[in-house]
């Protein structure tokens, strides 16, 4: 369980970081729409329309890293998975003491 949570935390952090970088490493706030500008040929005016698009910002990256940190922190509440070799040796030594 401990290892699974740690792997999940790492995956969340890496995936969020990669997504943020791939989307342009936006240093501002997350956007769910982006302005699309068009020029009206007759009047010369610049029109603005908004297109739905998710662009992760620094708040998205921060929240993802915070979540990854929480997962990594939660993993400390679980005992480490016992290694099979270590468990066998531990059992053998107990038997020797008992005899």
């Amino acid at each position: 369980m401990k290892r699974a949570l740690q792997l999940l935390a790492l995956t969340v952090a890496l995936a969020a970081g990669a997504w943020w970088l791939a989307a342009g490493a936006r240093a501002g706030w997350t956007q769910t729409s982006v302005p699309v500008k068009t020029i009206d040929d007759v009047t010369g005016l610049e029109g603005i329309a908004y297109q739905k698009k998710f662009v992760p910002g620094i708040d998205f990256l921060g929240a993802a890293l915070l979540g990854a940190g929480a997962l990594a922190g939660a993993s400390l509440m679980f005992r480490g998975d016992a290694q099979p070799g270590f468990q066998q040796k531990h059992n053998d030594s107990n038997q020797t003491i008992n005899t």
Partner: peptide, 23 residues
Amino acid sequence: PKGVNNAIFKLDAPLEAINGSAN
């Protein structure tokens, strides 16, 4: 009818300026 008319507003803020518009 073409929806080009707009008003743009901008307010400065520490992380990034708040930019928006109204059509």
